[in-house]
Design a protein around this nucleic acid. Structure first.
Lengths: 122, 122
DNA sequence: CTCTTGTTTCGACATACGTCTATGTTGACG
DNA sequence: CGTCAACATAGACGTATGTCGAAACAAGAG
């Protein structure tokens, strides 16, 4: 839901080398804003550290002193930012990381990155 | 102003491999929150693209359709997040990037980074 | 079908955030 | 000293965000 298909993305040259297009800044800010909360940061971290497997909400909730709806709300924001994905299996919902998005951010924040040389838009 | 000297930082193992300490998440969220606004993202981008030199506010303000105090406010947030630094020279104030912070973020978002193998704290 | 458990959605509310105008502060120049 | 220009700060205002409790939804068990 970020910029996987927005052609005017300007994602690749990196944030630190070119002045960053206005549309791109809006898209990008959406993702950074999703990371701009301690709870969401910890949630993402907990989910991503299980790089192969998934985590169900029932495992995440007790780690915080917050109500279950609040955790669910934060997970929704992370999902809408394209940072995680969810899948329901039986009674439980399992969350897993979407590394492409964090990879993209890491590349953007890396100096002189220019990660995708030729039109590697996919 | 982020975590250059907070010992309980946990900055190094990377966000995606270990569950991320609670204090660290607060510090880190502060930086991401600073990036979670299109205007600040563009400001940082404009400043960082002058990697060697500086930019004065008078060059930044006209690029946006916002009042000068608003730009000043955003610059202050970026400064408090440790992403940029400012220096007054005569009438003008020049801003320059602080790459250490963005480097740190990039490392945190990189999978399997683990840049500091053994207890390389500081 | 009903009941129980896990999860999401819905309103409501307090606080934080982005923006503005007005005012201060700092330095250059007569 | 007075005035002007560049930035910063202060206060105000509307909107967004984080949180909750209550209710709705989904799926398995009896």
């Amino acid at each position: 839901m970020i910029g996987q298909d927005t052609a005017a993305d300007g994602c690749c040259p990196g944030l630190l080398t070119a002045p960053l297009d206005e549309d791109a800044s809006v898209e990008l800010a959406r993702v950074f804003k999703a990371l701009g909360d301690p709870v969401r940061l910890r949630l993402l971290s907990m989910i991503a550290s299980r790089a192969g497997g998934e985590v169900c909400v029932c495992d995440l909730t007790p780690a915080f002193e917050l109500s279950q709806p609040t955790i669910s709300h934060h997970l929704k924001l992370l999902r809408e930012a394209g940072l995680i994905a969810s899948e329901r299996r039986g009674t439980w919902v399992y969350y897993r990381p979407l590394p492409e998005t964090t990879d993209r951010l890491a590349a953007l924040l890396t100096r002189g990155a220019a990660p995708a040389p030729a039109g590697a838009r996919a």
